[in-house]
């Protein structure tokens, strides 16, 4: 059985009088320890798919099964716990807290997980070393380059040791070299046993991915796997 089973997933928005179908029936089976690249033009529904999978939004219909949990039927608090324990998010615009140091930014999610302060900092430091920022732990985000900021964000996504990493255009704001470094990092995460799903425009990502999905107008138009 797959780690994630998405069945006939639909999401519609009301835009004025018009109903927009961001997802119009998507079904997908994602094995554990796979690396998925979700591609498609703007408005194709790829970000919507990622947010639904991450429990940040609710589908209009359809099912999302992650492990043993039916995500669409969880209540608000259970969804928060699901995001905390199972998901690590990486965003295009990093979403670091400007006034916190790299260390505190990485440790931030642990505040909601009843982890003692000393342990929080130890874990955050370990992860910053792992993404190559062991010498930048007390720097504020504004004192770091874009690539470094995104690496802080990757470390933050890993701090709760989640099974599933969801990345929304992680290289979109980065130069080529920094983007490559992030892709390498995501690939390492995949190789160390996690499941990674990346929403991207960047065709280089497909060379790291085990599976590539093309979306258009809320539907899957092609699905390729590279084994």
């Amino acid at each position: 059985m797959s780690f994630i089973t998405i069945t006939n997933l639909r999401k519609s928005y009301q835009m004025g009088r018009e109903t927009v179908h961001a997802l119009a029936g998507v079904s997908l089976n994602i094995e554990a320890n796979s690396f998925w690249a979700v591609m498609g033009p703007s408005g194709s529904g790829k970000s919507t798919l990622m947010y639904l999978l991450g429990g940040l939004d609710r589908p209009s219909s359809g099912q999302i099964q992650v492990g043993q949990q039916a995500i669409e039927s969880l209540d608000e608090n259970a969804l928060a716990v699901y995001r905390r324990r199972t998901i690590g998010f990486i965003f295009q615009s990093f979403n670091l807290i400007a006034s916190l140091s790299a260390l505190d930014n990485v440790a931030f999610p642990l505040r909601f997980a009843r982890v003692p302060r000393r342990q929080r900092h130890a874990r955050a430091y370990e992860l910053l070393v792992r993404v190559g920022l062991g010498d930048r732990i007390h720097h504020k985000p504004t004192e770091l380059s874009g690539g470094q900021q995104q690496r802080v964000a990757v470390a933050r996504a890993l701090v709760n040791n989640p099974q599933l990493i969801l990345a929304d255009e992680p290289t979109g704001n980065l130069d080529t070299a920094s983007g490559t470094a992030i892709m390498e990092l995501l690939s390492d995460l995949h190789k160390s046993g996690r499941t990674v799903l990346v929403v991207t425009h960047d065709p280089r990502m497909t060379s790291y991915a085990t599976h590539t999905v093309q979306l258009l107008d809320g539907r899957i138009v092609s699905e390729t796997s590279r084994d």
Binding site: L56, E76, R85, R156, N160
Partner: peptide
């Protein structure tokens, strides 16, 4: 606002 969104994304409940 974005910080609130981040708090929720990393697992803060509405009560938090």
């Amino acid at each position: 606002t974005r910080e609130i969104g981040l708090m929720k994304a990393v697992g803060a409940t509405n009560q938090h």
